[in-house]
């Protein structure tokens, strides 16, 4: 009997059907799930088991008709082990976990991220573009240099079709303007006269900077940020290794996406994360 959905259970063994080098030290994969599943919401994640090596949370970049797409940047031995996996190899998937981004209607959607943070933003872009309501979508992506930009061609293609406004920058100026994505974000906010929502994913320190900028603009009616870059063991709310102080919210089930109101209450946001021991470490 084929299971009808993916659930919080032991890893479901799934086969890699496509692999490509997306950018420097970053591979993307399409993985065929042996269960019937239509879609996932942007911001949600799965736990990826690389047999004999490691298991960790990975945000969903796409999910359609039981084909899961993920992007894996080199972050340590666990991700390097995944980079060695090829088409035909098996990996374990459990999930789907977490609370997603919840875009409201009738606002400017401002997506900003860098590195591995681009994966949930890819799915969010896809969902927003598919929405029939006329909305303005801006994607701000930054990287150290042009060979590190994730989904550059995919996003540029949407830009050329007039579906999104793609703002690209690099630290070294090798592509787009030189500097951080926050420069264009602020430029937009200064000029815009309508309400905006900021969505961010990526390194927490960067998101804290974006959060502090966003607070200066009353036209930013909400900010939704994914704090998925945390050490997790279970992914479903039991172990609390991803919990944040002082609220006791677990990133895996109470997040990973939090809105402005909640982010204001998390004193750990952009400041501390927890190690495997449970000890807090300055970010």
């Amino acid at each position: 009997m084929i299971k009808q959905t993916l659930s919080n259970d032991k890893p479901v063994m799934s086969v890699i059907v496509e692999k490509w080098e997306e950018c420097f030290e970053t591979y993307c994969y399409k993985i065929k799930l042996p269960v019937k599943i239509q879609s996932a919401k942007p911001g949600q994640f799965i736990m990826l088991w690389v047999p004999r090596e490691d298991e960790y949370p990975i945000c969903i970049a796409g999910l359609k008709d039981s084909i899961l797409e993920v992007g894996i940047a080199k972050m340590g031995p666990g991700t390097e082990a995944m980079h060695k996996k090829e088409v035909g190899d098996l990996v374990g998937i459990r999930g789907i976990y977490g609370k997603p981004f919840t875009p409201p209607e009738d606002v400017n959607h401002l997506l900003i991220g860098g590195g591995f943070g681009m994966t949930p933003l890819k799915l969010l872009t896809e969902v927003l573009v598919a929405n029939e309501n006329k909305q303005t979508i801006h994607v701000f992506e930054g990287a150290r240099s042009k060979n590190r930009l994730m989904y550059y061609e995919w996003l540029q293609d949407f830009h050329d079709q007039g579906k999104i406004n793609f703002h690209v920058c690099t630290d070294d100026g090798s592509l787009g303007y030189q500097g951080f994505p926050t420069i264009d974000l602020e430029k937009f906010l200064q000029e815009s006269e309508t309400s905006s929502v900021i969505y961010a994913a990526g390194p927490e320190k960067m998101m804290k900077v974006i959060f502090d900028i966003g607070k200066n603009y009353p036209k930013v009616v909400d900010m939704q940020m994914s704090l998925a870059d945390r050490y997790m063991r279970c992914g479903f709310g039991a172990c609390a290794y991803c919990a944040v102080d002082p609220t006791g919210w677990r990133i895996c089930v109470d997040g990973p996406v939090f809105n402005t109101e909640k982010l204001e209450q998390i004193s750990d946001f952009g400041v501390y994360k927890r190690l495997e021991t449970g000890e807090k470490k300055r970010i």
Binding site: S7, D9, P11, M47, W49, D54, Y56, R94, C234
Partner: peptide
């Protein structure tokens, strides 16, 4: 890891 998972 894996160090915690459910058995539905």
């Amino acid at each position: 890891n894996p160090s915690v998972f459910a058995l539905n």
